[in-house]
């Protein structure tokens, strides 16, 4: 009976304070969508950043006149360098295929021969991404016999390295501010929704309802608002993600787990917000 009554009261709250609850839902949805949008942008930027920065890739061009066994020896020598994770041999033929795949041009038809030299694609271990550390590896590879040239996005890495800390600070600051604003907005709208029914709380206290019994329907209602707001925000982000992916960024990722996390944040904020707000009236 008690649980049924509490659940019924929680659902009935939606019907009884329709305007306040609608405003609360809209605010929760928009706040969570804003928070989610920031998280998605930050996550996708961080992914792209990691692709460039966290695992550095070097292209090592070598003398085309080397024999098969020389390539094997060179590969072993490169892989013996401590910071190197792997070295993959790319034959001129394979390089040509990649070029044609990326640029869609038939090089041989234009130049009548394949101009691309053999190379090794060298992947550094994670953590070896500071410009000085990369330079040290590059110098060691260049010192090896038969290596012609080592190419990597040096300028981009120097730029990222320079602004890495600043970027993290800005992202954390912005993220914290957006989270704080969203939380305050959600708490405030829930408080207003509860305020609109303070007479119910007053009467419940007057007729001898325990604090837990008074709180329960409001907390349930807060959880429900957080859940619905979270689901709507997740739906909005999913749709927006789909649209952006289709129109501009095919590589954009909107992971399901992330959207589920957003719903969980909504539920948590709804629960805490209503707990604090109704508690305030009980302590008044």
């Amino acid at each position: 009976m008690k649980l049924l009554f509490l659940l019924k009261e929680g659902f009935a709250g939606f019907r009884r304070a329709r305007l306040a609850v609608t405003i609360a839902l809209a605010t929760i949805t928009l706040s969570l969508a804003l928070l989610g949008l920031f998280g998605l942008v930050a996550q996708n930027l961080s992914d792209s950043f990691q692709r460039v920065f966290y695992q550095i890739r070097l292209e090592v061009f070598v003398d085309p006149s080397l024999s098969e066994s020389d390539f094997q020896t060179l590969k072993s020598e490169i892989e013996r360098i401590e910071a190197v994770q792997s070295a993959e041999y790319i034959s001129p033929g394979a390089a040509l295929q990649e070029f044609e795949k990326d640029f869609g041009k038939d090089l041989v038809a234009v130049l009548e021969s394949n101009p691309l030299p053999p190379s090794f694609r060298v992947l550094l271990k994670t953590g070896h991404s500071r410009p000085e550390a990369i330079q040290a590896v590059v110098r060691r590879i260049e010192a090896l016999k038969a290596v012609d040239e080592v190419v990597y996005p040096e300028n981009l890495i120097r730029l990222l390295d320079k602004y890495f800390l600043l970027g993290i600070l800005i992202a954390v600051g912005l993220g914290t501010a957006i989270f704080a604003i969203s939380t305050l907005l959600i708490f405030n709208t829930i408080r207003l929704a509860i305020h609109s029914r303070q007479r119910v709380i007053e009467i419940m206290r007057l007729v001898g309802a325990t604090d837990a019994f008074i709180k329960a329907p409001f907390i349930f209602e807060g959880i429900l608002q957080g859940l619905i707001g979270g689901l709507l925000a997740a739906g909005l982000l999913w749709l927006a993600g789909d649209l952006v992916r289709y129109l501009f960024l095919p590589g954009l990722s909107v992971p399901w787990l992330y959207l589920a996390g957003l719903v969980a944040v909504g539920v948590l904020l709804g629960c805490i917000g209503s707990y604090l707000s109704v508690g305030k009236y009980l302590n008044a």
Binding site: M1, K2, F5, I203, M204, V207, G208, F213
Partner: peptide, 11 residues
Amino acid sequence: AFALQVIGSPK
């Protein structure tokens, strides 16, 4: 009825 419901009385 509300006065009895909120103190958990049987239906």
